[in-house]
Write a protein that binds this DNA or RNA. Sequence first.
DNA 1: CTGAAAGCGCTTACAG
DNA 2: CTGAAAGCGCTTACAG
Lengths: 335, 335
Amino acid sequence: MNGPTIYDVARESGFSIKTVSRVINGESGVRPETIDRVERAIKALDYHPNPAAQRLGGGKLPTIGIVVDSIDDPFFGEVIAVVERRAVEMGMDVLVASTGMDAVRARTQVERLVRRGVSALIVAPFGDDAAARADLPDDVPVVVIDRKCGIEDKDVVRVTDHEGAVEAVRHLVAHGHERIAFLGETAEFTTVQDRLSGYTDALVEAGLAVEPELVETRCWSADVAYPLALAMLAPPDAPTAVFASTPLVGLGVLRALKRLDRQDVALVVFGDFPLAELMTPPTTVVDQRPTPLAHAAFDHLARRLDDAHAPVVETVLPTRLIQRGSGELPPRETS
Amino acid sequence: MNGPTIYDVARESGFSIKTVSRVINGESGVRPETIDRVERAIKALDYHPNPAAQRLGGGKLPTIGIVVDSIDDPFFGEVIAVVERRAVEMGMDVLVASTGMDAVRARTQVERLVRRGVSALIVAPFGDDAAARADLPDDVPVVVIDRKCGIEDKDVVRVTDHEGAVEAVRHLVAHGHERIAFLGETAEFTTVQDRLSGYTDALVEAGLAVEPELVETRCWSADVAYPLALAMLAPPDAPTAVFASTPLVGLGVLRALKRLDRQDVALVVFGDFPLAELMTPPTTVVDQRPTPLAHAAFDHLARRLDDAHAPVVETVLPTRLIQRGSGELPPRETS
DNA sequence: CTGAAAGCGCTTACAG
DNA sequence: CTGAAAGCGCTTACAG
């Protein structure tokens, strides 16, 4: 039931286990010929190091931990998919953990993964800035994704939240809208705060008033967003356009529009989502492109695994406006 | 940097490490008072057993491995989300692995997880029956999900593929359709074979002809399904209804319908998907309900973790037809 | 009901 | 450039 151990490889190759260990870990200062013989023995025996023993001996597990809001969120699903693929390529595997948007659980999940001995962590922090910062370990490489949360001592990969929101709202303005609603999640997140300030800035830039009754920041989930969107869009003096700060919020808005049987409300959603192109009209989005984001995060991870003291970097990826129809609707005639 | 060990707990509680070990593992034959004192010490020190040491000592890792086609598939995403939540409840964590629909990779992924020492595995097998069977280990509990692949010696949780397909096609027949297309993935899978036979059986039952040119089984992905659906639906004598064997295929069909600007083709998709209700018309589906399936799989896992020799069971969950509009369209007038 | 010993398969110092 | 020793933190037999 158990495979060959380092002792078997040592015997087979004629060297000591220490030398085999050196070869496995790619340490320098081993004669090429020795490396060759050891590798031959490893192949011959189909030897694979025991990760638990590696860890206990003093190393880390060949494992990457990833902590996200929820695994079945399409955005994070794509991120995890990319990370898993890249990890497998380097012979590592991936431990997933979700926070369920619960700050306490976010903390315990990170703690558990660190205790497990993961080599590195990719984390979408959750909670207020202070909590998010406190949750992250200092003895394990961490790459923060999606939200900065005021974290300065870790590598961060995020998108241009502010600029993306500005672009979205400018786009609506350019199509003639003057009364544009903002629907978003709680303002606890830097991300959403940035998107909200982008919204505000774009309005001011266009010389339009920021109407507080058109700003709704309590959309925690699609289910919560739905009635709030309904309330916002049902009245005769409803806004002619909506900017939704996340795909989940956008989903709530789309449900409300369907319910109201309205296809004349302009909509731009921050974050692309599957089937957006199949809506009627197809949904215009600001794409945050999870795949490049995940690749960038993994690149940083690999770099830091190589050199724990590499300088901290923050990568801010550009978003991209994808015009599909809903964002190009003209303002409807107000009754 | 390192937390307390079992020795610290032994010292703190006044017992030996063996007794502490007994308490940790819930072994019987320990005095209640002893248990109490040890647990108190564990709490006081905030002790957590080192998983790598547990594993190396002879146990398994408190870890569940899950192998699926792809992590960003909404169906599997939901399954993984449920499994992760349940696992965390029992203090275990989750290693994810994707096959990318590649039989070779399916094998190596399972092998890797077993080598890592996971306590149990949840696997959506990939490949032909013989390969799928050969891939699964016998020394680790395995629960097979979604596809049976002729596996008889493992717990299996799947849905009523045949009956679900029959119900879908009957539904279309009941709404007056006589020319119903089948679009699906390769016939390599039992799952799709069952859905195809359900389609055929329902047609025969209704006294309708099975027209080979209406059966397309080469839809590997949404991208492949799209042109095939286009080719099937563009001609003037196109079928009036479509049964899509998976959500991915359904997506291809929806794109084709959008492209053809047709809202009068009846459609039932096997497998629910997000935003189905927001299509025009809303998409009628046969829901395979990933959440109950995942819970059932986890229940089996927990049972087998308790008793490795529990009898093998196969759970077949019922599907559910959700009428949303697209499946209730009447046949269009043929030109 | 409890404990002392040996061992799991690696790694880290430390030698030479 | 290579190796012998000790130790990581648990568990499994085996005693008593």
